[in-house]
Amino acid sequence: MESMGEVLRSMNNSALRQRSRDLEQNLLNNPLVKQLQAEHPELDESRLRLHLSRLYQYVEESRHCANCPGLEKCPNDFPGHYSKLTVETVNGSTDLYERKTACNLKVAKDNQDSIRKRIRSFYVDERVLNEGYDEIDIMGKDPRRAPAVNQLFRYIENTKENGLTSRGLYLYGTFGTGKTFLMCYLLHELAVAGHSGVIVYMPDFIEDLKSIMMDGQKLKETVDAMKNCDLLIFDDIGAENLNPWARDHVLGAILNYRMNRKPTFYTSNYPLDGLEKHLSFTSKDGEEMYKGQRLMDRIAPFVDVIPLHGENQRGTNR
């Protein structure tokens, strides 16, 4: 966009000077400038003429915004922002001031970016976290999901109204009923409310611990992130191939820290008693019932159990 200053500097002869005067008059007669004058009669025309560049920028960017091509193609000097003019009196002198102001699209994008920064995922497909959520669609896909979905909605609303408690949710059901999707919805909604969250896909996390354990700093950062986030979701717990070290020193340490402090959430194909049997068995030491019970003492008392019934939704919009 050619600036008003560049236009004026190009005026070197009488014809061009006349063009300059015409441009200036057209600008002063622009409906937006006339509206500004009507709203601020204390701002005389001589003062406006001192700020032709600001008026030109204001009019041009208002025109761009009226025909907005989208945030990515914004033609304004400062993409996602427009020139906003204000009239202020400073030390008894009234003058025109320009401020760059974020448009609604820019504000919405910044809000979404802020929400995404509150959420970390380990081994979970980012598309699940970034896709849109429609509450009617969530409920309407399968009526048998309604009791579970309603309980999830109530948890979200209670948390928004009353803040976090140490109590989470344990969502279990058969393959493909939308457990991960619903927990991602919960995570998104509470991130909008300002809470940080981490979601961990357990089979890949436990498998990756074999390499992470050789990097003490990375292991500490990973475990600390899970300990300290507002909301922690262990997705598909019970599907991992446990070893004693991962169970007792990693998972156990995280759960021991969070109980009575912050809520932890789970999705699983197992009900609680089935999960206890799974946690009691490792590939190295076989069955150790008391160790499974020890972990369950850090899970079961701190969750509300929600069975999720319904058809396998994989391959559809869940």
Rank of each mutant, 00 (worst) to 15 (best):
E2S: 05
S3G: 02
G5P: 06
E6N: 06
V7D: 11
M11P: 02
N13L: 11
R21K: 10
L23R: 08
E24S: 05
N29R: 08
N30G: 02
L36P: 04
A38L: 11
E39M: 10
E39R: 14
S46T: 15
R47Q: 13
L48D: 12
L50C: 05
L52G: 02
R54W: 14
R54M: 15
Y58N: 03
E61F: 10
R63K: 14
R63T: 09
C65Y: 15
C65R: 15
C68Y: 10
P69F: 03
G70M: 00
F78V: 15
P79D: 03
V87K: 06
T89K: 09
N91F: 13
S93K: 15
E98S: 14
D110Q: 13
D110W: 13
S114E: 13
I115V: 12
S121G: 13
Y123R: 09
N130F: 14
E131S: 07
E131G: 10
D134F: 00
D134I: 12
E135L: 12
I136Q: 15
K141R: 15
R144H: 07
R145L: 05
R145I: 07
I156L: 13
L164C: 01
T165Q: 05
S166Y: 10
S166N: 11
G168K: 07
Y170S: 14
L171S: 02
G173C: 01
G176Q: 02
T177G: 10
K179A: 00
K179M: 02
F181I: 06
E189K: 07
A191L: 03
G194P: 05
V198M: 09
I199N: 06
M202K: 08
E207A: 11
L209D: 07
K210L: 15
S211E: 10
I212G: 01
I212F: 07
M213V: 12
M214P: 01
M214F: 11
G216D: 09
K218H: 14
V223W: 04
M226C: 07
K227P: 05
L231N: 05
L231A: 07
I233L: 06
F234P: 03
D235Y: 02
A239Y: 08
L242H: 04
H249V: 06
L251N: 08
G252D: 13
L255V: 04
L255H: 01
N256V: 02
N260W: 04
N260K: 13
R261P: 01
K262S: 04
F265P: 02
Y266R: 00
S268I: 00
Y270W: 11
Y270G: 02
D273G: 02
L275Y: 11
K277N: 14
H278A: 08
S280L: 09
F281P: 03
G286W: 03
K291N: 03
G292T: 04
Q293T: 09
L295P: 02
L295S: 10
M296E: 15
M296K: 12
R298C: 07
D304I: 11
D304W: 01
G310C: 01
N312E: 09
N312S: 05
Q313F: 00
N317W: 15
R318M: 12
